[in-house]
């Protein structure tokens, strides 16, 4: 146990995990309340095609994935604004386009299947110090931008129309949220993989919404749930010798069920 706590692999995983949890826990609340919970999922597919492109060009797949993901995010917003589509249709279009493009690129090259597979479940236990720094910076950017625009974000999430009339720059903030989500998704891709990054964006936030009575508490509890999922997920991975990413999501699910029960029992905060 003591070896574990001083192990660099463990510490790096924990640190990067906590940074990711912070970004996901905070952003998730806004996404879920704006009924955009699946945007992370859609962007993860877009990021997948970015990774494929990166492997084809044989040049920094994660960085290319980030660029592609940001472009995809902007495209989703543009289609949503100008395409007169319903709800998450734009998201559906872009995410399937991303996946199809990714698969097409994979089949064109037909030579990096295994490498791409590593991003299905991420490698939180094998990340470099550089990646820890990257996740730290990302979390900081998310926290600072959300902090600066905190009141305006609540306003527009709660009542978009009135926020618009009050002079809140709603479109700019919406763009900001989606771009931050895109960045978080790419980081999540590296740590917990395409399949699980949505889980971290959605589950802690939804769990927190079951029990929180104010917006501030929702954000705090969501972040707390994220932290607990990451930390106990990594510890469980050690004790049960199971992949860390899956354990993390498993704990998040348990917390969600717990929150549902606690709501039934009127245990709210």
């Amino acid at each position: 146990m003591t070896e574990l706590l001083t192990s660099g692999i463990f510490l790096r995983a924990l640190l990067a995990g906590l940074f990711l949890a912070l970004a996901c826990g905070l952003l998730g609340v806004f996404l879920v309340l704006r009924k955009e919970a699946m945007i992370g999922h859609g962007l993860a597919h877009v990021a997948f095609s970015g990774l494929a492109l990166g492997f084809i060009l044989n040049f920094m797949p994660l960085a290319i994935s980030l660029v592609v993901c940001l472009l995809g995010a902007i495209l989703i917003l543009e289609i949503r604004e100008h395409g007169s589509l319903y709800g998450d249709t734009a998201l559906g279009i872009i995410s399937s386009a991303g996946l199809a493009l990714g698969i097409l690129l994979v089949s064109l090259k037909r030579g990096f299947g295994v490498e791409l597979m590593s991003f299905l479940f991420g490698d939180i236990l094998a990340i470099s110090s550089g990646e820890v720094w990257f996740s730290g910076v990302l979390a900081l950017v998310v926290v600072i931008l959300l902090k600066i625009n905190y009141q305006a974000l609540i306003f527009m999430t709660f009542d978009r129309e009135t926020a618009l009339v009050s002079g809140v720059r709603v479109k700019r903030l919406e763009r900001m949220l989606v771009l931050l989500t895109a960045m978080t998704v790419v980081l999540g891709l590296k740590l917990v993989g395409i399949l699980l990054v949505t889980a971290l964006l959605v589950i802690p936030a939804s769990a927190s919404l079951q029990v929180a009575q104010s917006f501030k508490k929702t954000l705090l509890i969501s972040t707390l749930f994220s932290f607990v999922s990451i930390i106990s997920g990594i510890f469980l991975s050690y004790w049960l010798d199971t992949p860390a990413a899956a354990m993390i999501v498993f704990v998040a699910l348990l917390l969600f069920v717990g929150a549902l029960i606690s709501k039934k029992k009127k245990l709210i905060f």
């Binding site: 070896e3 574990l4 192990s7 692999i9 463990f10 995983a13 295994v114 597979m117 299905l120 479940f121 991420g122 490698d123 236990l125 990594i234 991975s237 050690y238 004790w239 049960l240 010798d241 199971t242 992949p243 860390a244 990413a245």
Partner: peptide, 16 residues
């Protein structure tokens, strides 16, 4: 299976 991911325990064992 080349797709499966290792647990932290296995990594720790190898380090030791």
């Amino acid at each position: 299976n080349p797709e499966s991911r290792p647990g932290l325990k296995k990594i720790q064992e190898i380090i030791e």
